[in-house]
């Protein structure tokens, strides 16, 4: 850099603000040693920053608090509100803390339900159900019922059992159903996966807060 290759105004601003990277700062500092024009600009930025940092706060007129309080209702919270608070705090402790956590939880909870659901739908559609398959169908129904309760632990256990059953019976499944039935099942599961991926995406890239987020109910 020399007198004919001045750094951009943004750089001088960042330099004065102190947000310039070490390397960039060193380059700019050496340029400043030989460039009176940029020195002047740096001084102007410094002047602006010092003027901004000396901007005062203003007081409202005397009695402001009293005028506000005339319009404020002070009511101790009802007992039921304390209980909903506690329930909310408990839910907040149990619930995932981040969007990413939420997405994982939703994905893990949804997957067995989606797969189990499509398996059941497929089994029911068969007119010639073997004893093995019928037993599996009954068990699936119970599993789905329990999953409906929503307990994460139960879901996890049943998920592994379901997986084991599917793996153990995959040969029988294919021989009973034929390729068409299996294909339909996979297509169903596939489209549901696309749907859950979209939900995941929406959760991961959700935009930040709006005013309404600050109140538990709308203002």
């Amino acid at each position: 850099m020399n007198e004919h290759n001045h750094p951009a105004a943004d750089r001088l601003e960042a330099f004065v603000e102190g947000t310039l990277q070490d390397g960039d700062r060193a380059v700019l500092e050496s340029h400043l040693l030989t460039c009176p024009a940029c020195q002047t600009q740096v001084e102007e930025w410094r002047g602006l920053f010092s003027a901004l940092s000396s901007l005062p706060q203003f007081d409202p007129s005397v009695g402001f608090a009293n005028r506000v309080m005339e319009h404020v209702r002070i009511a101790p919270r009802a007992a039921w509100q304390e209980w909903t608070d506690r329930a909310g705090a408990l839910a907040a402790r149990i619930a995932p803390k981040t969007n990413y956590g939420w997405s994982l939880a939703v994905a893990f909870l949804a997957l067995p339900i989606l797969l189990g659901g499509s398996a059941i739908a497929w089994l029911v559609s068969k007119s010639y159900i073997t004893t093995d398959a019928l037993m599996g169908y009954t068990r699936d129904s119970i599993i789905e019922g329990l999953q409906g309760v929503g307990s994460t632990v139960i879901t996890f256990v049943m998920q592994t059992e379901l997986t084991a059953w599917v793996v153990a019976n995959i040969g029988a499944v294919i021989s009973t159903a034929g390729v068409t039935g299996l294909g339909a099942m996979l297509a169903g599961a596939g489209s549901l996966t696309v749907l859950s991926t979209w939900v995941l995406y929406r959760n991961l890239f959700r935009s930040p807060s709006r005013e309404s987020d600050y109140a538990l109910y709308s203002l």
Partner: peptide
């Protein structure tokens, strides 16, 4: 005008204090 609007701001916030979400 600023006094009126600041007053409105406080009245709105303080009357909604029991609905404030302490995560923010």
């Amino acid at each position: 005008k600023a006094e009126d609007l600041a007053q409105d701001t406080f009245i709105k916030v303080l009357n909604a204090i029991d609905r404030y979400n302490p995560e923010y």
